[in-house]
Amino acid sequence: MSGPNSDYDPVEVTPLQAEEVEAARDAALAAIAAAADLEALKQVRLEHAGDRSPLALANREIGALPPQARKEAGQRVGQARGAINQALGKRQVVLEAEHEEQMLVVETVDVTLPTDRRRPGSRHPLTLQSELIADLFVAMGWEVAEGPVVEAEWLNFDALNLGPDHPARTMQDTFWTEPADHHVVLRTQTSPVQARTMLTREPPIYVVCPGRVFRTDEYDATHSPMFHQVEGLVVDKGITMAHLKGTLDHFAGQLFGDGITTRFRPSYFPFTEPSAEVDVLCFVCRGEGMVPASSVFPLHDGDILCRTCRGEGWIEWGGCGVVNPRVLVACGVDPDVYSGFAFGMGIDRSFMFRHGLEDLRPLFEGDVRFSAAFGTEI
């Protein structure tokens, strides 16, 4: 029996010849060096290091060689492919650095240059709310009255039947200007505008008075030392609480939606007699106190407590009443001939009701994103 034949005539596959492998390697290295950007290098990688590249195809031909020749051919091809991959890696680093430098130059913005780009502005939502309320009353034939925010003590208190010992006059409730003997305050309500109106006009009077007011409240989610009120005043012959109720029902329906009415709860205010707290029918649950769970949690059935009115069906809105005869006398109006009614509500609070806000601080913090969301006119 004869042993293995170690004498053979090597079979040389053309792509595996040393000259062919070197030529493929040199061509790849030249293409890598010539790649001017990352996109060109990507194409070179596909052509010279991809699955269909010359050296990849040559590597597949190694199996056609006799066993004794495979090792040498494999080393030759492997070294060539290694040199190409190394060159690709180095060129990749260089081109990425060049690309970053180029992007820094191309995308550089000179922030000192003048520009005609301007952020779209929006009016403050409380301004729009005040104007909306004023428009509602102007449509009923009323007038809009205004007055100073720095007001005389007599107009802010005495003319409105708030006596010298009333708690509202203390430093804990009112901002007083210096010196104190000038008797000047930051108005605590827009009622002084009503007093000024009665002092300067003859009845009949139908005015609405929106504006800023100031009180020494803590600044939190529901209180602010500066906020906004709207007050209404009617002085005419034969005015009763029925006229007041009809006016507020119309106001509530226009502001919160059709079918929204008000209710009165007996109360006390120095400048009206009789007086009442005004509640507005909850515009979410329509007085039911409950809302469908699906309106809050889409996948739940049944009813849940209304978050807007907390299950009460009504929302506290403001105060109102028939003008106290003492206020009429102080302002030069004969209470035997004329009667009237007055009411007052917070504009900020009404805005929070309409838009479901639970914190009033965004109204005063000047965030343009908040104003852009709410401060648009329709």
Results as ranks from 00 to 15, higher is better:
109 V>N: 04
32 I>R: 01
144 V>T: 13
282 C>F: 14
96 E>H: 03
242 A>G: 13
334 D>P: 00
348 D>K: 01
79 Q>C: 04
278 V>G: 01
131 E>L: 06
176 W>T: 05
350 S>N: 01
126 L>E: 00
130 S>V: 02
268 Y>F: 15
216 T>G: 09
152 A>E: 12
41 L>A: 06
122 S>L: 02
305 L>M: 12
213 V>Q: 00
258 D>H: 07
7 D>L: 09
378 I>N: 04
177 T>R: 01
345 M>K: 00
254 Q>T: 08
301 D>C: 01
374 F>C: 07
183 H>R: 13
309 C>A: 11
345 M>P: 01
44 V>K: 04
234 V>C: 15
149 V>K: 04
267 S>E: 07
46 L>D: 09
78 G>C: 11
339 S>R: 11
231 E>R: 03
196 R>A: 10
227 F>R: 02
314 W>I: 08
135 D>N: 08
129 Q>R: 06
250 H>W: 15
178 E>M: 05
97 A>G: 05
259 G>N: 01
284 V>H: 14
11 V>E: 08
91 R>K: 15
46 L>V: 09
268 Y>N: 04
355 H>F: 15
161 N>V: 09
169 R>L: 14
52 R>Q: 15
282 C>P: 03
222 T>Y: 04
158 D>L: 01
234 V>A: 12
131 E>C: 02
283 F>C: 07
49 A>H: 11
177 T>N: 03
106 V>F: 14
309 C>Y: 09
20 E>C: 14
133 I>P: 02
69 A>V: 07
372 A>K: 06
33 A>K: 14
286 R>M: 02
27 A>K: 13
170 T>K: 00
369 R>T: 12
343 F>L: 08
319 G>F: 11
116 D>F: 07
125 P>K: 04
156 N>R: 01
184 V>D: 02
64 A>W: 07
261 T>Y: 03
1 M>T: 13
57 L>T: 12
71 K>F: 12
110 D>K: 00
214 F>P: 03
367 D>I: 01
295 S>Y: 03
215 R>P: 06
162 L>F: 13
71 K>A: 14
115 T>K: 01
291 V>C: 05
342 A>D: 04
29 L>V: 05
304 I>S: 00
29 L>Y: 10
104 L>Q: 12
9 D>E: 14
212 R>T: 08
50 G>L: 11
345 M>T: 15
27 A>H: 15
102 Q>E: 15
134 A>H: 04
25 R>Q: 08
193 V>D: 10
27 A>R: 11
116 D>A: 08
231 E>L: 03
111 V>I: 09
306 C>S: 06
121 G>C: 09
307 R>E: 15
39 E>C: 03
11 V>S: 06
141 G>N: 09
70 R>S: 05
366 G>Y: 14
128 L>H: 03
40 A>P: 04
328 L>I: 15
285 C>A: 10
53 S>H: 06
150 V>Q: 09
360 L>Q: 05
143 E>D: 14
265 R>A: 09
130 S>T: 02
75 Q>F: 10
241 M>H: 06
302 G>R: 08
251 F>G: 02
83 A>M: 10
2 S>K: 04
138 V>N: 03
106 V>P: 01
368 V>S: 12
147 G>W: 11
69 A>D: 15
56 A>Q: 13
159 A>E: 11
252 A>L: 13
297 F>D: 09
208 V>E: 04
121 G>Q: 11
339 S>K: 06
24 A>F: 12
226 M>T: 12
31 A>N: 09
127 T>P: 00
33 A>S: 12
210 P>N: 07
218 E>V: 14
